[in-house]
Amino acid sequence: MRVLHVISEMGAGGAEAVVAGMVRSGGDFGWESGVASGGGHRAEALRALGFTTFDVPVARRRASGVLRAASATRAAVRVFRPDVVLAHNVSASLVSRLATKTPIATVFHGVAEADLGGAARILRHTSRAVVAVAEASADRLRAAGLTPEVIPNAVFPEPPRVDRAAVRGLLGIGPDVPVALCPARLEPQKRHDVLLEAWAMVSGAVLLLAGDGSCRAALEQRAAELGLTERVRFLGTRCDVRDLLEAADVTVLTSDWEGMPIALLESLAAGRPVVASDVDGVREVLAGGGGVLVPRRSPAETAAAMAGLLFDSAARTAAGAAGLAAVERDHDPHTFMKSYDELLRTIAGGRG
């Protein structure tokens, strides 16, 4: 089965990690995989492994951009001749539908509540099947009149390249300093402003922000205003989050909304507990332990949860073990790939 993944970019985000894992694992299920995207380090890595990649300009929610992306995707389809297209997120679904009559399945990684109605209308007219990455996301789609499949995200194992001491040495952090890591784009959805307010209430620890985005300048200014310059590190976009997890004791996500964030699953798979906003797929993942849920936009409660894990090794160890067990039980990559294989073969078999 020839599967063409269509996605806006292949950089450091969670959906991009899913695509890279699916492409690398697809051969075990008889897939020949290609990726059409705006590029990024994950696309380069796949190309170096011999997988077919195509360059597609990012649509950026503009009509002219969508048309340019559709034209490039149409060219990719002519060359690759897929049996099925797997579009990741709504914009990729629209681009794919404009580009080809090949059967399309769309992975719905999530949108803001205000965008759900428009997203549902697009998906209704573009996709033969829609996959929600969490039950909560599926419920929202059902309320909008769709009938999604539910395939929870998986995390594809990636061993660290260096050990804890080496990573901390490179970062200039001592071996006994408590460290929290937030691996998230610096965009409004992720609410780093809430995290900084919370961090001002936690003393004696370092916060690593791995990601970049449109909010960076404002967040750096706010960190300075809060007197956090020495305790918050803006690391920019990183390709080594798995290594950074070795340096961290806890990870934190203060998002306003999420589907099922891969950063959370990667953290739990590395044995690192999570403090996270009580939203959709995050709630599902942490239902069996693995960290602490806090109300959205609640700096004080976020600070208390972070301090509780950073400075209590027994609580941290117990939460880390519970999270690792949950990932192994509920987010196994083989089960994940088998579910997609069955779905895509059904769709491809019904073409025409």
Rank of each mutant, 00 (worst) to 15 (best):
L264D: 02
V130N: 01
L94N: 09
A270I: 06
P183A: 11
S25K: 02
D83R: 01
S91D: 15
A134C: 11
A200C: 07
L343Q: 04
T102F: 12
P273C: 00
L67F: 13
R62L: 10
P178S: 00
V179N: 07
S8N: 15
A69N: 01
V66W: 00
P82D: 06
G350T: 10
G323P: 10
A325Q: 14
E158V: 14
P183I: 04
A112F: 11
V95P: 02
G26D: 01
V130W: 05
G204T: 10
F234W: 09
V107A: 14
R231G: 05
A307L: 05
P175C: 01
V133L: 08
D249L: 04
L293K: 10
A224S: 15
A318P: 08
A72D: 08
G110T: 07
D249A: 09
Q221P: 00
T73L: 02
Y340Q: 07
V90L: 09
R238E: 08
A12M: 14
P295L: 10
V279F: 00
D83T: 06
H5L: 01
T335C: 13
A315S: 11
E230G: 12
I347R: 12
V6C: 08
A136V: 05
V177Y: 05
T229L: 12
A305T: 02
R161N: 11
R142K: 06
L181K: 07
R161Q: 15
I7H: 01
R345Y: 06
D278L: 07
T302L: 08
V294Q: 09
M22V: 12
A248G: 00
G320H: 05
L208V: 05
V194C: 03
F234N: 10
D28P: 07
L264S: 09
R345G: 03
A200T: 00
D256T: 00
G21A: 11
L116Y: 12
I7P: 06
E301D: 12
F51R: 01
G65T: 02
S203L: 07
R231N: 14
A326Q: 15
L98Y: 14
V162Y: 12
A144K: 14
V107L: 15
D249R: 07
A325M: 13
G30K: 11
V133M: 01
P159W: 12
G352A: 15
Q221H: 13
F311D: 03
V150K: 11
A224V: 10
K338W: 13
R222C: 04
G117Q: 10
A184G: 04
E16W: 00
V84Q: 08
R78K: 13
R283W: 03
E16N: 11
T106P: 06
D55C: 02
Y340D: 06
G14V: 14
A136L: 04
S96N: 03
F29R: 15
L196F: 00
D240F: 05
P178F: 00
A15L: 12
P273G: 03
A276F: 05
E284D: 04
M306N: 02
G172V: 06
R61A: 09
V6Q: 04
C215L: 15
S93N: 13
A325N: 13
E284K: 06
A287S: 15
T102E: 14
L226E: 08
R238K: 09
V274N: 04
P183E: 05
V85L: 12
S137D: 13
A304K: 13
A184L: 06
S127W: 08
V3Q: 02
A198C: 02
G27Q: 13
I104K: 09
L265I: 01
G172T: 04
